[in-house]
Nucleic acid binder design. Structure first.
Length: 208
DNA sequence: TCACAGATGGAA
DNA sequence: TCCATCTGTGAA
C-alpha cells in the first residue's frame, strides 16, 4: 500500500542510538515506515523506508562482515549501532546501510527502497528518470536520488546530516512481507534465510 | 595481479 | 529475458 504521510510531518523524531543497538532483524522490520533524511544545508531529501534487508554478521555468508573479515571498506560495519555504512557496488553504484547492535558485531540493515517524500523535484533532477516510481525503487537508485555516496559513509545517524526519523506511521505486521534476500545466490544456506522485509503492495518496492 | 560484486537501464 | 556498464575491493 501507498503510505499516507501528510498527517505525520510535524511530529517527526530522530531515532536514538538505542533503536539501532538491538537485534538486527528486529531493526530491519521496525525501519519500515520510518523516514530516511539526507539534510544538505537547509535542504532535505527524504523518503519513507518501504523495503529492508538484515545482514547478520560473522555467520552470514552474504554479509561483508562474514568471518569477522575487517578491512578498510568494512570498517563502519564494526562500529556501534547508529552509524552509516555506504559501500560501492559494481564499480558504479552505492548502497546505504544502517549499522546495528554494538561494537564488533558487523551487522547492518540495507535500505532497499523508499517512497519519495521531501525534495522530490530535486530527486528527479538527480536521477534523470521520467517516472516517480523509478526514483528510489532500489538500493542504488535511492542513493543517487538522495545524493548519498562514499562521503556519507561512517556518519553518525544521530548527527545532523544523515538520519532516520520516526514519523508515527504504524505498520501492522500483517502488512509486512518476509522473503529471502535479493542477489546473494553465492551465499549458500544464508541465501534462503528470511531476512528481506517490505510493505505489502507498496509501488516503490525494488522487486516482487 | 585479477575475478567479481547486496545493481541498473536499455535492448532484444 | 539478456547484456554492457565500470571500478573498488580482497584474495593470491
Amino acid at each position: 500500500m501507498l503510505l499516507d504521510v501528510t498527517a505525520t510531518r510535524k511530529t517527526a523524531k530522530k531515532l536514538p542510538l538505542s533503536f539501532y543497538q538491538r537485534d538486527t532483524t528486529l531493526v530491519a522490520r521496525e525501519l519500515l515506515g520510518k523516514r530516511l533524511v539526507h539534510q544538505i544545508g537547509r535542504k532535505r531529501l527524504s523518503g519513507i523506508i518501504v523495503e529492508t534487508e538484515a545482514y547478520i554478521g560473522a555467520e552470514d555468508r552474504a554479509c561483508h562482515g562474514f568471518g569477522n573479515r575487517r578491512t578498510r571498506r568494512t570498517e563502519s560495519l564494526f562500529q556501534e549501532g547508529g552509524y552509516s555504512y555506504v559501500y560501492m557496488i559494481y564499480g558504479m553504484h552505492f548502497c546505504f546501510n544502517a549499522v546495528t547492535r554494538t561494537c564488533d558485531h558487523p551487522e547492518a540493515v540495507l535500505v532497499r527502497a523508499l517512497q519519495p517524500n521531501e525534495g522530490v523535484s530535486e530527486m528527479k533532477r538527480n536521477r534523470l528518470v521520467k517516472s516517480e516510481r523509478e526514483l528510489t525503487s532500489g538500493p542504488a537508485k535511492l542513493c543517487e536520488a538522495l545524493l548519498i555516496d562514499k562521503a556519507q559513509d561512517r556518519l553518525s545517524l544521530v548527527g545532523s546530516e544523515l538520519f532516520i526519523e520516526d514519523i508515527n506511521l504504524q505498520i501492522s505486521s500483517q502488512d509486512i512481507v518476509t522473503k529471502p534476500r535479493i542477489g546473494i545466490a553465492y551465499a549458500g544456506e544464508a541465501a534462503h534465510w528470511p531476512l528481506r522485509f517490505y510493505i505489502c503492495g507498496n509501488p516503490f518496492i525494488s522487486k516482487i
